[in-house]
Nucleic acid binder design. Structure first.
Length: 206
DNA sequence: CGCCAGGGCCATA
DNA sequence: TATGGCCATGGC
């Protein structure tokens, strides 16, 4: 929690996920798979402000691929977007209907979809629907090695660690993951060698 | 020019 | 269960 406090006092509340609607979070979560966020923004901009389930399902596959092309992997991602949107349709595209179900049930449904693994599932659960699930990504796994956390080295171990050591608070889970990502981008790249990092006192510098 | 970005799928052993 | 190849664009 001390590590979190340092990050929070440095960066504040980042108010993730940057999106105008829960459905846009879902779309962004697919598009950002192994992809720079700036490329995702270009793809989202191609929708000209209309990123809705109905719009997406009305597009034919080639049109959809053309729109999301800047985000890369557009053949598979177009397929993934249609798949997850049809899943959402089971709930009449209604966020509250999804939220009324148990977290584990929705998580299992998402993981069963083609194109949705642990990280994408948790990103959607937390940032689109507000479920208390901790998101792990490549940055977070590196974070667990870099600082003395003893959180394991695989996705589910790290997730279990954070959830066991933090209060089950959606706002906290939301901002903690965002802070880890931002801090990694700002200070943990090969170029910017930890200069000014608020966690430098803890860093093991592998 | 090469590297890599807020992964996940699939084939192989 | 654990690797490795593959998918693709754009910024640096």
């Amino acid at each position: 929690m001390d590590i979190y406090s340092r990050l929070e006092s440095c960066y504040g509340n980042l108010n993730w996920w940057p999106a105008r609607s829960p459905y846009e979070v879902i779309v962004g979560a697919i598009l950002t798979q192994n992809t720079n966020w700036s490329n995702v923004e270009k793809a989202l901009a191609n929708f000209d402000g209309d990123i809705t389930p109905m719009r997406l399902l009305a597009l034919d596959l080639d049109e959809l691929k053309a729109l999301i092309r800047p985000a890369g992997f557009y053949n598979q991602k177009a397929d993934y977007l249609v798949t997850v949107t049809k899943w959402f349709e089971r709930y009449a595209f209604d966020v509250d209907t999804v939220r009324a179900r148990p977290l584990d049930e929705i998580r299992a449904q998402l993981l069963a979809l083609r194109g949705i693994g642990n990280e994408t599932a948790d990103s959607i659960l937390l940032y689109a629907f507000g479920f208390p699930t901790f998101v792990i990504d490549k940055y977070t796994l590196r974070f667990c090695q870099r600082y003395p956390l003893d959180a394991g080295s695989d996705y589910m171990s790290a997730k279990a660690y954070f959830e066991a050591h933090l209060p089950r608070d959606v706002a906290l889970f939301n901002n903690y993951h965002a802070l880890i990502v931002i801090n990694a981008k700002e200070h943990c790249s090969a170029k910017k060698r930890c200069e000014g990092c608020p966690l430098s006192a803890y860093c093991q510098k592998l």
